[in-house]
């Protein structure tokens, strides 16, 4: 197991490097002159040269890449000041350090991701399993029907509806906003509850359907029938034998969803006017802010790789056949 983790971690480091390189050189290959973009309308040649110098754009491309990559581990010095490790560079436009910008936005994204995940895992898997357990009953039909309807909704459709009902027309709640948890736990909870719940609703629907079908599939497995043939009760067999196998597809999809959300839930953020990682990534790409885009890409890729490793470890816990091979 330890060997497996070490091997996967080394693989992840290499992958991160390759992703960084790919992003960097794609960006450089794009026909844009960042200095003139940053310079604005009335751009004197002198100012342009200064900007080039300040951004380090007159260095060879390989040198720029090297500086960027070493900066992550050792920090860098910019004319405007020192950027300590992990340094993801300095935004071309705002001049802020990319790392600290990302860290500013990250708590919000983390709140959305973890909060949403807890809600949709508990409600979604719970409802799906209940539906499978009482297959064909009213509960099953209701859960299946509701998840059908909800999963065809979109956040940008459901979000505004909820806002109109709870905020604009009745004033029951305030506009969603992010208050740091450490500052005001209640404000944090209330401020984020609408975005978290709306996002979770869409996912809940998907997870309900997935949990139900995967459970029904498992219940038809022969080893589940064997357990029944031993005289184990329906409940016991359901929760000990069938449940475990049904987790495998759920863990797979959850790993993908979770890391994607950590990389930024753009639609949710835009719908509720929140400033998270997703919006940062969009800004970086549309304004051709190389360091910002690189930073967001690397942080996102980092989470995807970490979650991938965690997913594989989870498989090993669920299924002993994976553990030993």
């Amino acid at each position: 197991m330890l060997q497996f983790i070490i091997r996967r971690t080394l693989g992840a480091v290499v992958t991160l490097f390759l992703i960084g390189a790919a992003t960097f050189f794609l960006f450089v290959a794009a026909p844009s002159d960042y200095a003139s973009l940053a310079c604005g309308k009335d751009c004197s040649p002198q100012r342009l040269a200064d900007i080039r110098e300040a951004l380090g754009l007159n260095l060879p491309v390989a040198q720029q890449f090297w500086d960027f990559m070493t900066g992550i581990f050792m920090g860098r010095d910019f004319p405007t000041g020192h950027c300590s490790a992990p340094c993801l560079g300095q935004s071309f436009y705002s001049g802020e350090m990319v790392w600290s910008t990302i860290m500013d936005r990250f708590p919000l994204t983390l709140t959305l991701t973890v909060g949403g995940s807890i809600v949709f895992l508990v409600v979604g898997i719970g409802a799906g399993m209940l539906a499978a357990f009482r297959r064909g009953s009213f509960v099953d039909k209701f859960a299946t029907g509701a998840s059908m309807v909800l999963s065809s909704f979109q956040i940008y459709f459901l979000g505004p509806i909820v806002l109109v009902i709870l905020v604009y027309s009745t004033g029951l709640m305030e506009d969603p906003k992010y208050v740091p948890l450490t500052q005001d736990p209640v404000g944090w909870f209330v401020g984020m509850s609408i975005p978290v719940c709306v996002m979770a609703t869409i996912f809940t629907a998907q997870y309900t359907r997935m949990a139900r079908s995967s459970m029904i599939e498992q219940l038809a497995e022969e080893h589940v029938r064997t357990a029944r043939a031993k005289g184990m009760s329906k409940k016991y067999v359901f929760f000990r034998y069938a449940w475990r196998g049904s987790l495998i597809p759920i863990v797979t999809v959850f790993g993908i969803d979770f890391s994607a959300m950590l990389g930024g839930a753009v639609v949710t953020e835009l719908t509720f006017s929140l400033q998270g990682i997703g919006r940062l990534a969009v800004n970086g790409a549309t304004t051709k802010d190389l360091p910002l885009t690189m930073g967001v890409m690397l942080v996102g890729a980092f989470f995807i790789l970490i979650v991938n490793i965690l997913t594989d470890i989870a498989y090993a816990f669920i299924d002993p056949r994976v553990r030993l091979s």
Binding site: E221, E222, H223, R225, T226, A229, R244, I318, P320, R321
Partner: peptide
């Protein structure tokens, strides 16, 4: 009951 295929009839978990 003894089932036909013991690989699928025993739980892998």
């Amino acid at each position: 009951m003894i089932f036909q295929d013991p690989l699928t009839a025993l739980s892998p978990f």
